[in-house]
Computed example of a mutant assay.
Amino acid sequence: MKTIAVLIAMFLGALMNAQTEKSGNITASVSNISNADGEVLFAMYTEDTFMKRQPEFVAKSDIVNGKATAVFENVPEGVYAIVVLHDKNKNGKMDFGPGGMPQENYGTSNNSMIYGPPNWGDSKFDFDGSSMEMDIRF
């Protein structure tokens, strides 16, 4: 009988925990794209994966009238950062010139304009699990 009571308590606890986790959609747009070559790649990271491992969410978008949009669906509440790349030649990565300078435009959430690679502190944002829209600039 004790075992059944413990199993029921565990089930109810798991059920209550599942109901409290909120998830929603994040719509990210880039509206200052200089040309329609290629596509725009979107990657959304947590602090643990930022620029080190595969992002939690990825998307890509065609460029229509100088704008690209991606929707990340069913995103749990948490802290994230989005990195966006104008992949002009559709090779799936950023291209660099001989001096190491990027040859393709990029941007991050919070529109931090820094020289060098994106960093977590300037790019992170809190997501409350409802819905969010953001415009990212190159």
Rank of each mutant, 00 (worst) to 15 (best):
Q54Y: 15
S23G: 06
H86L: 08
K22Q: 05
R137M: 00
V6G: 01
N89L: 11
K2I: 09
G99Q: 08
I63V: 03
D128R: 09
P102S: 11
K88Y: 10
P118M: 06
E104R: 01
R137I: 07
A5P: 01
I26M: 05
R137D: 05
L12N: 04
N65E: 15
N35M: 04
N119Q: 12
K90C: 06
N17K: 14
M51P: 06
S29M: 07
L85T: 01
N110E: 06
F127R: 07
S112T: 12
F125S: 04
E73M: 13
S123N: 05
N17C: 13
D126Q: 01
N32G: 04
E77L: 10
T108Q: 01
I114S: 13
K90I: 04
M94T: 08
W120N: 04
G116S: 02
P117L: 12
S29K: 14
A18I: 13
F127Q: 00
D37P: 08
F50K: 06
P98M: 02
L12R: 03
N111D: 11
E77S: 13
P118I: 02
I33H: 02
E47M: 04
A81P: 08
V84D: 01
A36H: 15
G97L: 02
K22N: 12
D122N: 13
N74W: 09
Y106Q: 01
G129P: 10
L85Q: 02
Y45N: 05
M94F: 08
N119D: 10
V79Q: 12
F96G: 01
F11R: 02
G92V: 07
S34A: 11
M101A: 03
M101D: 04
L85N: 03
V30T: 08
K124Q: 11
T46S: 10
S23E: 07
V64H: 15
A14F: 15
K93N: 09
K90G: 10
N32T: 03
D126K: 06
I136T: 00
G99T: 09
A59S: 13
I33Q: 09
V64L: 14
K52Y: 08
G116R: 02
T3V: 14
A43M: 13
K124F: 10
F125H: 00
Y115Q: 13
E133I: 09
P118Y: 01
K124I: 07
N74F: 13
K90F: 04
K52H: 10
G13P: 04
N119H: 07
R137C: 09
G13I: 10
V83A: 06
E56L: 14
T3S: 13
A14C: 15
H86Y: 05
V64G: 09
N89Y: 03
G38L: 05
